[in-house]
């Protein structure tokens, strides 16, 4: 036992420190490092032994010796820690490298669903009119002949009925030829002012071809109030055309004939295919007819008990397929009802 703290002892401590650091740096795995840690910092480790020799040191040397051993311990702990971190980083690095996958492989997962393009189009148009204060309602597909025709100023054998050749069910029931019939129900049950639209299945007895389907979708709307003007009809429909087809859409109103409106008009938009220069779709005219409209005939209002002197009304009706076909460049109406998934997923 040494009587006195010698320079040799201190040097020995420094040496242990250097050895420990070297051992840490040389540890090539987390397990090897753990061995090093136990060798130096374990309960039976080098540093613990050093502390135990402290008791035999001369009292006056103990503080200084103790300090040195504590410093050694801290230095070794730090070395172990530093090495542990660098080993962990390397391990992570390796794992990440091992986990590399071919990110160019295609995706994998459930097939996605989709709204039918016509449902989506109808909702979209409805939203435009909701924004203009219209109420969206619905009505039956089977109508009384009276409500579908007579209430709209078309008595039996009226020449205008030719354009709306209809399916009958017997008992005077007809598959509605237009959702304008819904307007009649709304006017029967409400008092002005009112604004409403409706949409859904309509039926006409047309042979099937690329532009005719015996069942199709129509969207109708009307507004009744004091001082409702033909110019308001133009303004509301212009807003619709621009909201649906784009802000630069041009519209054109030309006289037409519907027994239930007077004046009657047809609205065309500048051809969205050719920009108005003329193409096969617009038959070289640069214009596409989109909808029929007009001011409700006074008799139509009268039949719903609305005073046509006090109130005026405008109304319009449009097939939904056509705007959808124009927007999505669909060339055959039958595609809507065939259920071919390649079509339904595309549009």
């Amino acid at each position: 036992m040494k009587e006195q703290l010698s320079a040799q002892d201190l040097q020995r401590i420094a040496e242990i420190g250097r050895e420990a650091e070297r051992a840490c740096d040389e540890a090539s795995s987390e397990a090897a490092l753990e061995e090093v840690r136990i060798r130096y910092l374990g309960r039976q480790g080098v540093i613990a032994q050093a502390f135990r020799t402290l008791a035999s040191a001369p009292p006056e040397d103990r503080p200084r010796l103790g300090q040195s051993i504590n410093a050694l311990k801290a230095a070794v702990e730090e070395a172990v820690q530093r090495r542990a971190e660098s080993l962990a980083a390397a391990t992570r690095q390796t794992r990440l490298a091992d986990e590399r996958i071919d990110v160019t492989l295609p995706g994998r997962g459930p097939l996605s669903g989709r709204w039918h393009v016509l449902s989506r189009t109808m909702e979209e148009i409805a939203e435009i009119f909701i924004g203009l204060g219209f109420e969206v309602v619905e009505g039956p597909e089977v109508e009384a002949d009276h409500d579908n025709f007579e209430r709209l100023n078309m008595p039996p054998y009226h020449p205008a009925r030719d354009a709306q050749d209809s399916f009958y069910l017997g008992g005077g029931w007809v598959l509605r030829t237009h959702t304008t019939a819904v307007d009649v129900h709304v006017m029967d049950q409400r008092r002005p002012p009112m604004r409403a639209i409706s949409y859904g299945h309509c039926y006409r007895r047309d042979p099937v071809d690329a532009s005719h389907s015996p069942m199709f979708q129509q969207l109708d709307g009307f507004m009744v109030g004091e001082g409702v003007r033909f110019s308001d009809l133009k303004g509301v429909l212009l807003h619709f055309a621009r909201a649906f087809f784009g802000p630069d859409t041009r519209t054109r109103f030309a006289p037409s004939y519907f027994p239930f409106t007077e004046p009657s008009a047809e609205m065309a938009i500048g051809c969205v295919i050719c920009g108005g220069r003329g193409c096969a779709v617009c038959k070289r005219s640069g214009w596409l007819e989109i909808l029929g409209c007009g001011m409700f005939h006074p008799r139509v209002l009268e039949m719903s008990g609305i005073d046509p002197e006090r109130y005026t009304a405008f109304a319009w009706g449009m097939g939904v397929e056509r705007p959808a076909m124009l927007r999505h460049r669909i060339d055959d109406i039958r595609l809507f009802y065939e259920g071919d998934l390649r079509f339904l997923r595309q549009v």
Binding site: L132, E135, V136, R195, G225, F230, D232, K234, R252, E262
Partner: peptide, 30 residues
């Protein structure tokens, strides 16, 4: 009203301005 249509037809639908309805607004609902 038939004469009004004749007037509008000959005067020109395109010369009628586009306006928005006046008066009370109604809530748009579904």
């Amino acid at each position: 009203v038939d004469l009004i249509e004749e007037l509008a037809r000959v005067y020109g639908y395109d010369r009628v301005p586009a306006t928005l309805p006046r008066g009370d607004t109604t809530p748009g609902t579904m």
